[in-house]
Amino acid sequence: MTYSPVMTETVVCWVLVHMIKGTARRGGDHTDKLREQIDGSTGRKHLLRGS
């Protein structure tokens, strides 16, 4: 089966976007864990305090 260049480009872009989104999500998770260890606040309570 042969793929057109447009289809190949679309698939590559889709994969890259989803990989970047997943990496950013995990980075945010790690940042939340670090913040929780530093200030002891869990969940979204820190947003209510304004910090």
Rank of each mutant, 00 (worst) to 15 (best):
R25M: 07
K33D: 09
H18D: 09
T2K: 14
P5Y: 06
E9V: 10
S41D: 05
T8D: 13
T8A: 13
Y3V: 15
C13D: 15
T2L: 13
K45L: 12
S41E: 10
M1P: 08
Y3Q: 15
K33H: 07
H30C: 06
L34H: 12
I38P: 01
S4L: 14
L16D: 12
M7Q: 13
I20K: 08
K21C: 09
T31M: 12
M1Y: 07
V6C: 10
R44F: 15
T42Y: 05
H18N: 14
T8S: 15
S41N: 07
T31A: 14
E9K: 10
H46W: 15
V17I: 12
M7V: 09
T2V: 14
T23G: 05
A24T: 08
D39W: 07
W14Q: 12
G43E: 03
M19R: 08
G43P: 04
D39I: 02
R44I: 03
V17F: 07
L47F: 11
S51I: 12
L48A: 13
L48S: 03
K45T: 08
H46K: 12
T31I: 03
V15L: 13
A24C: 14
L48Q: 13
V12Y: 03
H46A: 08
T23Q: 02
D32E: 13
G22W: 03
T10Y: 03
L34P: 00
S41C: 11
V12M: 05
V12W: 00
E9Y: 07
P5W: 03
T8C: 04
S4V: 10
T31L: 11
Y3N: 11
G22C: 07
S4W: 06
S4Q: 09
T31N: 01
L16T: 13
I20F: 12
E9P: 05
D29L: 12
G22Y: 01
T23P: 01
H18E: 07
K21T: 02
M1L: 06
G40M: 02
S41I: 04
R25A: 03
M19T: 06
V6R: 15
T8P: 04
V17D: 10
P5N: 01
E36H: 02
A24G: 00
G27Q: 00
M7P: 01
E36D: 04
G50V: 06
R35G: 00
R49I: 01
I38N: 02
W14F: 12
E36L: 09
M7Y: 14
G43W: 00
T23A: 13
